[in-house]
Design a protein around this nucleic acid. Structure first.
Length: 106
DNA sequence: CCGATGACGCGCC
DNA sequence: GGGCGCGCCATCG
């Protein structure tokens, strides 16, 4: 399994109307390469299956997007995620991503 | 193999 | 609170 595939697997779990952060994704797959996560999403071959636009920066900013940040914002707002001044309320829309492989130690 | 780059994160000024 | 710099990991040249 490639690194990118793992990123997609985790990102794919983000429900509509919610968002997550690169840090959360990286932590979910067990890596500290936050930047690598972003790169994987940039080269995301899976279209709507992997909602890469639902992944934002940990500071609440939009972050980046292949088609342009504005487009990203528009898509998010369209899904119900309210955005003000290029910022998202992580406290409200942030969702915890569960690790794709690691179990919760029963 | 080494060097540079990137949709980031955090510490410091 | 805003801006700047360094560090992180994976991929590409």
């Amino acid at each position: 399994m490639k690194f990118a595939e793992r990123v997609y697997g985790v990102t794919k779990q983000i429900p509509r109307g919610k968002v997550s952060t690169y840090k959360a994704v990286a932590d979910a797959i067990g890596t500290k390469g936050y930047r690598a996560v972003g790169q994987a999403l940039h080269t995301n071959p899976h279209a709507p299956k992997v909602p890469c636009h639902r992944v934002v920066a940990s500071d609440g900013s939009i972050g980046g997007f292949a088609l342009g940040t504005k487009k990203k914002i528009l898509m998010l707002k369209r899904e119900g995620v309210n955005i003000h001044n290029k910022n998202i309320d992580l406290q409200k829309y942030f969702v915890r991503l569960k690790k794709e492989k690691g179990r919760e130690v029963p």
